[in-house]
Design a protein around this nucleic acid. Structure first.
Lengths: 121, 121
DNA sequence: TTGTTACGTAACACTATGGTTACGCATAAG
DNA sequence: CTTATGCGTAACCATAGTGTTACGTAACAA
């Protein structure tokens, strides 16, 4: 709803779901999967400006999807499994829906209901 | 440019990443994991209006995360594994980053690099 | 010191998103 | 038929998100 905060209280860490919602940020992760890169390196690989990259990197960092390592005046970024693992954990209960056949989806749902009876807050 | 339209450029199917970025939509999915529900059913379980639910449901439907089944004037929604599976597929290559422990992250990255040498288009 | 390089942050504009209320359409029931 | 129910859509408003340019700071090099 309306938080009425309006100040830039950036205390709340952005969640991983929001972080990977942006295709540019997913592409950044895909790049970091292969090698450690700085913000400048990334900016050269994308059609957007370096400040934009810096913002994306900030979101990913606060969501614990990447880590920062300072080398001289450069900052190298690498993957941090923590955030993606959280998403994977959320996704896990759904995985049975496609690993188990689709032919009997209803029984699968009922089995799920037994396993985690009241998971919602 | 689009000066006076700008309202619904939503012809393109929304991707699943965007769909699960919203906590309300994730909660909707969690409810549908246990039982088949209509938009009205969902609206009663959430503190937002039914039209808002209908919009969320539309996003989830176009992202192939849920399915619609018409019963009389009611529309029952159930999970569609297709969309979440796509996300899981994207997530899969990263899974090795936390299944292999953090002790030697660099070698893991190099292994990944060998496996899918150039994945970006 | 001065100059270069690498980077993040501030300020701003535009678009996208998510909420509301009001309305229209389809089906069911009387 | 008329009336009620269930649901989606349109119009509108407030906020969050994403891009830009301009600027400030920190680490090297000379």
């Amino acid at each position: 709803m309306v938080t009425h905060k309006s100040e830039y209280t950036d205390d709340a860490a952005p969640d991983g779901y929001r972080a990977i919602a942006d295709p540019t940020r997913r592409a950044i992760l895909d790049h970091l999967r292969h090698e450690e890169l700085s913000a400048g390196d990334l900016a050269r690989r994308f059609p957007i400006s370096r400040p934009a990259i810096a913002r994306h990197v900030g979101v990913l960092k606060r969501a614990r999807l990447i880590r920062e390592r300072r080398v001289a005046q450069s900052r190298r970024y690498s993957l941090d499994p923590e955030g993606l693992r959280a998403i994977d954990d959320w996704l896990a209960p759904y995985r049975v829906f496609w690993s188990a056949r689709l032919t009997d989806l209803k029984s699968v749902a009922e089995e799920m209901a037994r396993n985690d009876k009241d998971e919602e807050t």
